[in-house]
Design a protein around this nucleic acid. Sequence first.
DNA 1: TAAATTACTTGCAAAATGCAAGCAATAAGG
DNA 2: CCTTATTGCTTGCATTTTGCAAGTAATTTA
Lengths: 136, 136
Amino acid sequence: MTKPTQKRGTGCPVTFALDSFGDRWSLIIIRDIMVHGKKTYTAFLESDESIATNILINRLKQLETDGIVKKTRDPENRRSYTYTLTSKGRDLAPVLMEMIRWSGKYDTRPEAMKDAANAITQDPEDFERRLRETAP
Amino acid sequence: MTKPTQKRGTGCPVTFALDSFGDRWSLIIIRDIMVHGKKTYTAFLESDESIATNILINRLKQLETDGIVKKTRDPENRRSYTYTLTSKGRDLAPVLMEMIRWSGKYDTRPEAMKDAANAITQDPEDFERRLRETAP
DNA sequence: TAAATTACTTGCAAAATGCAAGCAATAAGG
DNA sequence: CCTTATTGCTTGCATTTTGCAAGTAATTTA
C-alpha cells in the first residue's frame, strides 16, 4: 500500500489541518459526500476530477484513520460499503464554505459554477445546515 | 524549474480553490505572511516546517502567478525582495480561520497551540482584521 | 450458472518533493 | 577597496507520491 502523506509534528493548527486534509484529493471526497451526497467507492470514482482507484482507497483509509470518515456495511447489499462523515468531518463544512466563497469571488472562468457561492451569500446558516445533513 | 501542480478544468469552486493553494506548502506560506508577518524568502525558510529552497521559490512563483502574492523590491536593501498578499490573498483569511477553529477543536496533542483558535472564538472580527493587516 | 457489480490490489511509469551543494548580486566590515 | 557575509535563488539527484492500466475476490443479478 502506498503511504499517506506524512504528518509534521509542529503544534501549528494550520499544519494540523493541512496534515489531515491538505492534499489534492481529501477535500474533493469530503465535498462529494457533503455537497453531492455520495456514499460509495464507485460514486466517488465517478466524480469529474477522475481520481485513480489506488489513490481513492488510500485517501478513504486515511480519512477513516483520522476519524473524519466512517465506513459501514450496506445492509441492503453485502458487497457494498457506505462512507459517511463523522461529526469531525461534518465540522469541516465551514472550511469548505469559505473556500467556495473565495472561489466564487475569484474564479473568472466561464465554466465557473457560482451557484453554491451565491447560496452561501444568501443564507449561510441554511447552506451549512444542508451540508451537515450530507445533502441531498 | 519543477512544474507546479497542474490545474483541473472543472468549474467546481472547491477544485478551483484546491488548485490554487491545496498543496502541502502554499497555505503555510500564506500563514507565515498573515499570522507571523513574514515578508522575505529567508524568513519563510526559517519556519518550523522547514520547506526546501526549490519548493519555496516554486510556490512563491506560483502564488504570484495566481495573483495571491505580490513581489516587490525592498527599497532599503537592493538584494532583498518583499512578498506581500494581494487582496485576493488577504481574502483567504476566513479559510485560514476556519481551519484554525477546526484544529482547535480536534487537535488533542499536547503540543497543539490553541491560542489562535481561542482568540477567534472570543473576537472573530478582530482576528480577521488583524490577519488582513498582515500582523504582527 | 454465467455475466455483471462492487470494492478493492498490484506493478510500473511519471511527477512532485526533499536534500545538498553551488552561484550571483549586493552589502558590510576591516 | 578588498574580503567576507547576506540574500535569493538554481541545479542535480534520490526519494516519495501520484497516476495509469490491468487484474482479482466476493457477492448479486439475469
